[in-house]
């Protein structure tokens, strides 16, 4: 290689490295700032008690519980619908105009801003179906927002199952459903679960979709039923940052830290599942 080519190579390499670092730096900075300012706020009391003194003291327990409920509720609605839709689209749907319309709809749904989902949820679940602002309305709204991502991830996972597995199974006299049940799903479930967890972790941090559909400004009592409102971490953080003057920053940052940690744990679970199955290298 000529020295000139070598130099070009070095410069190119350097530029690539730089771009990569530019991606990483904000992540590190954000995390560092949140951890630095928030760690002081973390305590057993903070995690297990209700806010007091106009949210300037006490903890964020109801918001943590609320977010957990919302994530579980979202999963309950979005996972079965998402998987079944993905199975239908990859395993059964013929390539016709209807399928193409559905494809386009899914792509576009993924691009709809989350506040629009919030307004949609308000219109459909809260007002029209008369659920009121409630966990069920919020979960359904978050579920609809997560569906495109879950469906897309699940379809990708289903598509990684070699076609010859399906063919062998059919050639052994399995029905289509038996093939899906015993061959396709077991071999794609890790990808489906991973994609779903990532979608849920995204939903856990959203404010706009829950703003009008479930989130309570201040509700120290824990929700008793699906039709109750609840507090939620992202909205609580928004409230603490904009609506409560003279609040100690460690409470705000502590809340942010808890939210980030929750999401991070979900992502780590997803990564662990994926690498676990990757190690077993299926085919």
């Amino acid at each position: 290689m000529s020295s000139r080519a070598l130099l070009t190579e070095k410069i190119a390499f350097f530029c690539l490295l730089l771009c990569t670092l530019i991606i990483v730096i904000p992540v590190i900075l954000i995390t560092a700032v949140i951890v630095k300012n928030g760690i002081a706020g973390l305590s057993w009391e903070f995690l297990t008690q209700s806010p007091r003194l106009g949210m300037r003291a006490g903890g964020i327990f109801p918001a943590i519980v609320g977010t957990v409920y919302l994530v579980l509720g979202t999963m309950l609605f979005a996972l079965p619908v998402g998987i079944l839709a993905a199975v239908y689209l990859t395993e059964y749907a013929k390539d016709n105009w209807l399928t193409r319309v559905i494809d386009i709809a899914i792509v576009n749904l993924a691009g709809v801003p989350s506040v629009v989902y919030g307004l949609f949820g308000l219109g459909l679940f809260v007002v029209f179906l008369k659920f009121g602002a409630s966990i069920i309305a919020g979960s359904l709204t978050l579920a609809i927002m997560s569906l495109p991502v879950i469906i897309t991830a699940s379809r990708e996972a289903l598509n990684t199952v070699p076609q010859s597995f399906r063919e062998v199974s059919l050639a052994l006299g399995a029905t289509r459903w038996q093939t899906i049940r015993h061959v396709v799903l077991p071999n794609s479930i890790s990808g489906i679960v991973t994609g779903t967890i990532l979608a849920l972790s995204r939903a856990a941090g959203e404010t706009a979709p829950i703003l009008f559909t479930v989130a309570a400004f201040y509700l120290p009592r824990l929700p008793q039923s699906l039709f109750d409102q609840c507090m939620a971490l992202p909205y609580h953080l928004y409230v603490l940052s904009t609506q409560v003057p003279n609040i100690k920053p460690h409470i705000q940052y502590g809340t942010a830290l808890v939210l980030v940690l929750m999401i991070m744990i979900m992502n780590i679970v997803a990564i662990v599942i994926r690498s676990h199955f990757r190690k077993k290298k299926l085919w």
């Binding site: 070699p162 010859s164 062998v168 050639a171 052994l172 006299g173 399995a174 071999n187």
Partner: peptide
């Protein structure tokens, strides 16, 4: 289809145990 089986170019056992691979068909029927 049970009557007419197919063997592929690349061996494609299911990612299961040896036993489960062979037992797959009988278990179905």
């Amino acid at each position: 289809r049970k009557k007419v089986g197919m063997v592929f170019q690349r061996p494609n056992p299911f990612p299961l145990s040896v036993y489960e691979n062979v037992a797959f068909g009988p278990r179905l029927h």
